[in-house]
């Protein structure tokens, strides 16, 4: 029997050794995140200098609103990615949750109850995905691709193919609100991001996700409850997509069944550009935010400069490829092999 009881709070008050500090530095200074952050800042500086419209309160608030919803979805998608899974259904879940919540609201259901019910829907969808992956052994890519189709269909069915109008004023007021000059959507994103970052970096659940994505077998042998981790990851993904769906609904003042098309791909791209590995075990909330910020900035800049949105798509694609390539180069040099 181990004489060191893992639950004894022995280390309370101990100072972390110097190695922890260097580790932090290394963590903050991860190559891709730094690169992407640099690129984003560069874009901001160039845009601020060359246009008069970019660095205005209105436009910046606009970017913050856009990046908020994108980030929330991307944070969620990061979780299945970390355990070497994927969730392609989030874009459709955004639409379904918006439509469901809007329908409930227009039927006279009180706002808190409508939100709660929509979140329950998120838990159910996440559980269904996790069950399919863990118990039925369906590859995550396939089951969530099926979800991408099915939940979009569900959104059209619930809304009868049209947008749901007539939402309570309080919701659009919330979506437009600002505290300390920062949009409420951005605050929402911050809260979700901090919570998820905390889980990922400080709790056993977070560490087990990284262990699982890094080496599934080792995690199993270490006695980690794999089932719990799989369910957790997919539920986080669906629930955050539901939150994003409701925020988007509030922002547009309608529940639209066509909302969130291709959002899953933007979310995955943000996570990957922000340092996540599709092979699991690597990725961070902060990096994902930086990735989402870069894409939101590009979209905004392209709009302001009147660049063809088709070119914008091409540029985004090239960027994803380039960032991942540079990251790979760096890793090869670091490990000397592979």
């Amino acid at each position: 029997m181990a004489t060191h009881d893992a639950n004894l709070p022995l280390g309370r008050g101990m100072k972390a050794p110097a190695a922890t500090r260097t580790r932090h530095l290394r963590k903050w200074g991860l190559p891709v995140e730094t690169l992407v952050l640099g690129l984003t800042l560069l874009l901001w500086v160039v845009m601020a200098l060359t246009t008069s419209t970019f660095l205005t309160t209105n436009n910046v608030v606009n970017i913050l609103r856009q990046v908020s919803i994108d980030s929330i979805i991307a944070f969620g998608v990061l979780f299945p990615i970390l355990i070497r899974g994927i969730d392609l259904s989030v874009g459709s879940v955004v639409a379904l949750s918006g439509v469901v919540c809007a329908t409930l609201l227009t039927a006279g259901v009180p706002i808190p109850l409508a939100i709660a019910l929509t979140l329950v829907l998120g838990v159910a969808i996440g559980s269904l995905n996790a069950f399919s992956v863990y118990r039925l052994g369906i590859p995550a890519f396939i089951i969530t691709l099926a979800g991408l189709q099915a939940f979009r269909g569900g959104a059209f069915l619930v809304s009868d193919g049209t947008s749901v109008f007539g939402l309570p004023k309080a919701l659009s007021a919330f979506a437009r609100a600002e505290w300390l000059g920062i949009p409420s959507l951005f605050w929402s994103m911050l809260v979700i991001g901090v919570v998820l970052h905390f889980i990922l970096s400080r709790t056993r659940t977070g560490r087990y996700m990284i262990a699982m994505g890094s080496n599934h077998e080792s995690a199993r042998r270490a006695g980690i409850n794999i089932k719990r981790i799989v369910f957790f990851a997919y539920i986080v993904s669906s629930v955050t997509a539901c939150i994003a769906g409701m925020l988007l609904m509030a922002r547009m003042s309608i529940g639209s069944p066509t909302a969130g098309v291709a959002y899953e791909l933007n979310a995955i791209a943000a996570a990957v550009v922000g340092g996540a590995s599709l092979f699991g075990g690597r990725g961070s909330v902060l990096g994902t935010f930086i990735g989402a910020l870069l894409f939101a900035t590009i979209a905004n800049a392209a709009n302001l400069l009147g660049i063809d949105s088709f070119w914008q798509m091409v540029a985004t694609g090239v960027l994803i490829a380039a960032v991942v390539y540079v990251d790979n180069l760096h890793k090869c040099r670091q490990s000397g092999v592979k």
């Binding site: 181990a2 060191h4 893992a6 639950n7 004894l8 709070p9 022995l10 280390g11 309370r12 400080r202 056993r204 560490r207 087990y208 262990a211 080792s218 995690a219 270490a222 006695g223 980690i224």
Partner: peptide, 13 residues
């Protein structure tokens, strides 16, 4: 983290 995997000491934050 590997040495302690599955048996991490926890404290209350």
């Amino acid at each position: 983290a590997n040495i302690f995997l599955g048996r991490e000491p926890v404290r209350r934050w």
